Amino acid sequence: MKNGEPLLYPYILSKSGDVTIHNISPCHGRSFIVDQRGQREFVVTKGNGLNYSSSTFLNTREMGDDTWGLLLRKDAERDFLLGNEISSLGIKTNKMEAVIELEADIELPTNKIVHPVLLQYTVECPYRIEDCAFMPQRTLWEEVMRWERLNERGYEMAYLIAADVLIHNLRILHDNNILHNAIHIGNYTWALELLDFELACSPKHPYENEDYQRHAVDLFEREIIHTYVVINYIAGCLQEVVDFKVLDKLFNRYGFDLNAYSVNIERKGPHNLQ
């Protein structure tokens, strides 16, 4: 920090670069660790280029200007704004610092020129839930042991501590009519920080596309299932067996009654699986 302002890291990947940035998992795609200010403050920049290819950016043509490794300004700004809004509601997230437009021209296959944009933020834990295979087991359990301060209900299994946090987060989001729209194992850290808001929308920051906004209301309930999947994965990483009845009751405690989505099966006779 300098005069209260964060130090900026305006870098994209280059074979001739003289600044070291850290790639801790290929799952992060276009995000890198650029600094560590303290034991629990890692600086991340997003949009620097791909961390799993010899190419910096790859455009597969099906997404228009959207390019693997690249971050567009409109997406960076939405991520920044929604992230701050969601953080203000008490959900633990990354701490946004800056949107940085670089003085460089990226020529897309369509011959369009775009300027790379970076999103800079800090996190307590640089590892995401999906990074389990790339993490030292000691690091994973050091993070899990920090969850004990959240364990006020006396849960016997660690995954239920995480579940309580994740389901509570979902309750806050939905009570405020906020759709995250990308809840999965790549968007929670092992410090249970919720990340990545470029696909999110809220009453304050609705989708600009009217068709997207009209259909957003239909996407809220699927986030219950998405959250369930993340919890299952956490339990698997911790080698814990999920008690689905207990977990369903926890969802219900927060107002998510899974029975409301049950589908009846009319059995007309035995069916053999080949």
Rank of each mutant, 00 (worst) to 15 (best):
M1G: 06
K2C: 00
E5D: 12
I12D: 04
D18T: 10
V19R: 05
T20M: 08
T20I: 10
S25Q: 02
G29H: 11
G29W: 02
V34H: 04
R37L: 02
V43R: 07
N48Y: 06
Y52E: 02
S55T: 08
N59V: 07
R61P: 00
R61L: 00
R61I: 02
E62S: 14
D65Y: 11
G69W: 04
L70P: 00
L71Y: 12
L71P: 04
K74D: 03
E77L: 07
R78D: 03
R78S: 06
D79K: 07
L81R: 07
L82Q: 08
G83F: 00
N84V: 04
S88N: 09
L89A: 00
K92E: 12
N94V: 10
I100G: 02
A104V: 11
E107D: 08
E107F: 05
E107G: 06
H115S: 09
P116I: 14
P116V: 11
V117Y: 11
V117M: 12
L119M: 02
C125A: 06
Y127T: 01
I129A: 01
F134T: 13
F134M: 13
M135K: 13
M135G: 11
Q137T: 10
R138M: 02
W141R: 05
W141G: 00
E142Y: 00
E143N: 05
M145D: 07
E148D: 09
E152I: 13
R153Y: 08
R153M: 06
R153C: 08
E156K: 13
M157L: 02
L160C: 06
I161H: 08
A163L: 06
V165T: 13
L166Q: 12
H168Y: 12
L170G: 09
H174M: 14
H174Q: 15
I178R: 14
L179P: 00
H184C: 00
H184V: 00
I185D: 01
T189H: 01
T189F: 01
T189K: 01
E193D: 05
L194K: 00
C201I: 12
S202M: 04
Y207S: 01
A216D: 10
A216S: 14
L219E: 06
L219V: 02
L219G: 01
E221Q: 14
I225M: 10
H226D: 08
T227N: 10
V229A: 09
V229P: 06
N232I: 01
I234S: 07
I234N: 05
I234C: 05
A235W: 09
C237P: 03
V241E: 13
V246P: 05
L247A: 13
L250G: 13
L258P: 04
L258R: 14
L258Q: 08
N259H: 08
Y261G: 09
I265K: 14
R267V: 08
G269N: 12
Q274S: 15
